[in-house]
Simulated assay, not measured.
Amino acid sequence: METKLELHGFNNLTKSLSFNIYDICYARTEEQRKAYIDYIDEMYNAERLTQILSDVVKIIGANILNIARQDYEPHGASVTMLIAEHEIGDPSTDNEESPGPLPDAIVAHLDKSHVTVHTYPESHPYEGISTFRADIDVSTCGLISPLKALNYLIHSFDSDVVTVDYRVRGFTRDVDGKKHYIDHDINSIQNYLSEDTQNAYQMIDVNVYQENLFHTKMKLKNFNLDNYVFGVNASDLDPAEAKGISERLQREMLEIFYSRNVE
């Protein structure tokens, strides 16, 4: 499908990008846990999330029709945007299997679609582990793939573990009546990530090519305890305590990465 398809009517394919971003932290006391959750609520409130999604809409070249946003009590926030078709220049290279910008505009052509984000801060009452999760969905109908926004989104959050799902649904017809179930080449979601992101994460693909289903798991390679303890310095911890905290944090990341509990 390297040449541009001549379609009968408009492009009916729906391309959906769904992914979870996890930020892991160690907060030892109840006061530190509360401070961490308050920090997350402030850092990723509905206003900030709206700005991030507005940048995503700009990257994929769409128009915002409507914004609904909400900060929840006691924690969390949601933003939903309805977006509409918008064409800028020549969209012939939109589906190239390459990383998207950070966050320069890209030419695009979309039908009515949506972008959503929901956040879920949580903490463990005994282990000292706190986890922030952001669920993001970008769904488009038209020529461009929402994967062009992935690179920017991963850089917009502190991402220790990321799980990404991409699916192309439905079909579109060419002028001869032949059905096409995908309109761009894709071998791996990883090809849409910048080189620095690929180097920073351990990644595993689980793809079902015949069903146009693509799945990638990502886990940050480097671990520095200073980046994970909240309210204290790692150098101030007893070495044995620091070792135990490091083991708990890394086990938490492994469990999320593999979607199973580790004994």
Rank of each mutant, 00 (worst) to 15 (best):
L5S: 09
L5Y: 01
G9Y: 03
G9I: 11
T14R: 15
S16M: 10
S16E: 08
I24P: 00
C25Y: 01
A27H: 10
A27C: 09
R28W: 09
E30A: 14
R33T: 15
R33V: 12
R33N: 12
A35V: 02
D38N: 06
Y39M: 14
I40H: 00
M43L: 13
M43F: 11
E47G: 08
L49I: 03
S54K: 09
D55R: 15
K58I: 07
N63E: 13
P74M: 02
G76H: 04
A77N: 07
I83D: 05
A84V: 00
E85A: 12
E85S: 13
E87C: 06
I88E: 13
I88V: 11
G89C: 10
P91L: 10
D94Y: 06
D94H: 02
N95C: 07
N95Y: 14
N95S: 08
E96G: 07
S98N: 11
G100Q: 14
L102R: 15
L102Y: 06
D104Y: 05
V107F: 06
H109M: 11
K112Q: 05
V115E: 06
T116N: 13
T119L: 05
Y120T: 03
P121R: 05
P121E: 06
S123V: 01
S123D: 15
H124W: 02
P125A: 00
E127K: 14
G128M: 10
G128C: 12
F132C: 12
I136V: 11
D137F: 01
T140H: 03
I144F: 05
S145V: 07
S145T: 15
P146V: 14
Y152H: 15
L153V: 05
D158A: 08
V162K: 11
Y166R: 04
Y166N: 07
R167T: 15
V168M: 08
R169M: 12
F171M: 09
F171S: 04
D174T: 08
V175F: 05
D176P: 03
Y181M: 09
I186G: 01
N187T: 13
N191P: 04
Y192I: 13
E195M: 10
T197Q: 14
Q198D: 03
Q202W: 03
I204C: 02
N207K: 01
N207W: 01
Y209S: 00
Y209L: 11
N212Q: 04
N212G: 01
F214M: 05
K219C: 11
K221I: 07
N222T: 11
F223M: 12
D226I: 07
Y228Q: 05
Y228N: 06
G231V: 08
V232P: 03
A234V: 04
S235N: 09
S235R: 13
L237M: 15
P239S: 06
E241V: 15
A242M: 12
K243F: 00
K243Q: 13
G244V: 02
S246M: 03
E247D: 11
R251A: 04
E252A: 15
E252P: 01
M253Q: 08
E255A: 08
Y258H: 08
E263Y: 02
E263D: 08
E263Q: 04
